[in-house]
Design a protein around this nucleic acid. Structure first.
Lengths: 118, 118
DNA sequence: TCCTTAGTTCAAAAGTTATTGAACAATTGG
DNA sequence: CCAATTGTTCAATAACTTTTGAACTAAGGA
């Protein structure tokens, strides 16, 4: 860890909801949930927004306590803070992600390179 | 019904989350959930904001599909659209309300007149 | 009819969030 | 060391959201 993160009990419900109420960030969270356990770097989300703008949105997610960003070399490994969110707001993340999965209007991550992890 | 409401399938997840991501509106929703079945009029929420500002926030909730406002005489009866929200985003409203109930920082409704329904 | 009550609308001001590009830092591979 | 890769920061701007007060409408009661 390197960048400032709130502790679990500092996570605020209205802030989390407001942060998730943005299609770009909701798409990021949905993607992180789908690939849970696999830490992502920012470049994974470059088809959602520009590099600068991503930095902004990822900072919002981190500051709200939704994600954790670890500096590893020149990359950031981004993970969902699922345990902390589940503890703080039981059921919330699951229902948001389930709803987001059914949302055809949300921008998709990785529609260009569909798993070329060969 | 009199004012424009979205149909159930027009309710959008990011819009609902953004609308709930405001402490005033979240307090309104929490109160409506607690008093479910009892339709409220706007004046119930006057300790959260001014009359004009309440009109704005209640319109946001209605336009997002979170509440229904019916004109009855000179009043508006405001109800939670629980069935529509549960159908569209299962579990979401329950987890938001449960989390909001545990949030000490949210402004409270009716702290001045605690049930003077005599 | 007149007054009150309940709430809306409008336009302005204030505040906040999102987006951009250019410049910067830090790490890593050659 | 040099260059490329990854991502951040900064300042400016654009775009929204919230808040306000004054003016308004519509219904209901005296």
């Amino acid at each position: 860890m390197s960048l400032p993160h709130p502790t679990a009990d500092q996570i605020s419900l209205p802030i989390v909801l407001a942060v998730l109420g943005d299609p770009t960030r909701l798409s990021i969270v949905r993607y992180l949930a789908r690939k849970e356990g696999v830490p992502m770097n920012c470049s994974k989300f470059l088809d959602l927004a520009s590099k600068t703008n991503l930095s902004y949105h990822l900072a919002k997610l981190r500051e709200a306590g939704v994600t954790r960003s670890e500096a590893v070399g020149t990359s950031r490994l981004i993970t969902l803070r699922r345990a902390d969110l589940d503890k703080r707001f039981p059921g919330l993340l699951d229902s948001v992600i389930a709803a987001a999965d059914g949302d055809k209007d949300l921008p998709a991550v990785g529609t260009a390179d569909i798993e070329l992890s060969a």
